[in-house]
C-alpha cells in the first residue's frame, strides 16, 4: 500500500509542531485537548500523540470507547497545517521509553514558539505535565487533510501526498 503521507508531511510532524487532538463520545459530542508531545515513525505509518490524563479525561474516554481520533499538526511559525484521522486509535501509559520523545518535543516547541516571540517559560507552562500523568495514543492515519489557512484548506491528501 502506498504511504498516505508525503515526506514533507512526515517531516512537519517529526520536527515537533503544535498537536491538538479530538475525538467524540457515543452521542457524537466532540472532545479535545492539546497534546504534550507528538511523534511519527519515519515511514509515516504510525503516529503517537501524548496527552496529560488529568487534562484529557473525556477525550481519553472517547478514544477508548470509539477508537476515533483527529489530530491537527500545525507549525506556529509557518501556519503549515495537517489533519490526520483514524478509527482505531489505542491508548497506553507512557513510560521511561517515551521520556526522550517528550523532552525532544518540548525543546522543539520552545524553539518554534520562540520564533514567533513567545517566551520559553510560556511554552513550557503550556506543555507542562507530570511524567506519570502522560498517556500515549497511537494510530495509523487513514485520512489526511491539508489545513494550511487558505481556500485549499480542508483538501484531502491522497497516497504519497497527491491531492485527490
Amino acid at each position: 500500500m502506498p504511504a498516505l503521507l508525503s515526506p514533507r508531511h512526515v517531516a512537519l510532524i517529526a520536527r515537533g509542531v503544535s498537536a491538538v487532538v479530538g475525538s467524540r463520545d457515543l452521542a457524537h459530542r466532540p472532545s479535545l485537548m492539546r497534546a504534550v508531545a507528538g511523534v511519527i515513525t519515519p515511514d509515516g505509518a504510525t503516529v503517537t500523540v501524548y496527552l496529560a490524563r488529568s487534562q484529557s479525561r473525556q477525550l481519553l474516554a472517547d478514544i477508548a470507547s470509539t477508537g476515533r481520533i483527529a489530530v491537527v499538526f500545525s507549525s506556529p511559525s509557518t501556519h503549515e497545517t495537517l489533519q490526520l484521522k483514524a478509527t482505531r486509535a489505542r491508548l497506553r501509559d507512557a513510560g521511561e521509553a517515551d521520556a526522550a520523545a517528550l523532552a525532544a518535543y518540548r525543546a522543539a516547541m520552545v524553539a518554534e514558539l520562540g520564533a514567533i516571540d513567545i517566551p520559553p517559560e510560556f511554552a513550557a507552562a503550556m506543555l507542562a505535565c507530570d511524567r506519570d500523568d502522560v498517556v500515549a495514543v497511537s494510530f495509523e492515519p487513514e485520512a489526511a487533510f491539508d489545513q494550511t489557512p487558505g481556500p485549499k484548506a480542508g483538501a484531502a491528501i491522497g497516497p504519497a501526498g497527491a491531492p485527490t
Partner: peptide
C-alpha cells in the same frame, strides 16, 4: 494564541480546526 475547535460529522468522524 489561536483557539481550536472540535466538531463531529454526521457519520461520527471527529474534526479539529484552528480558528481565526
Amino acid at each position: 494564541v489561536p483557539a481550536q475547535m472540535a466538531t463531529c460529522a454526521d457519520d461520527g468522524t471527529p474534526n479539529v480546526a484552528y480558528l481565526s
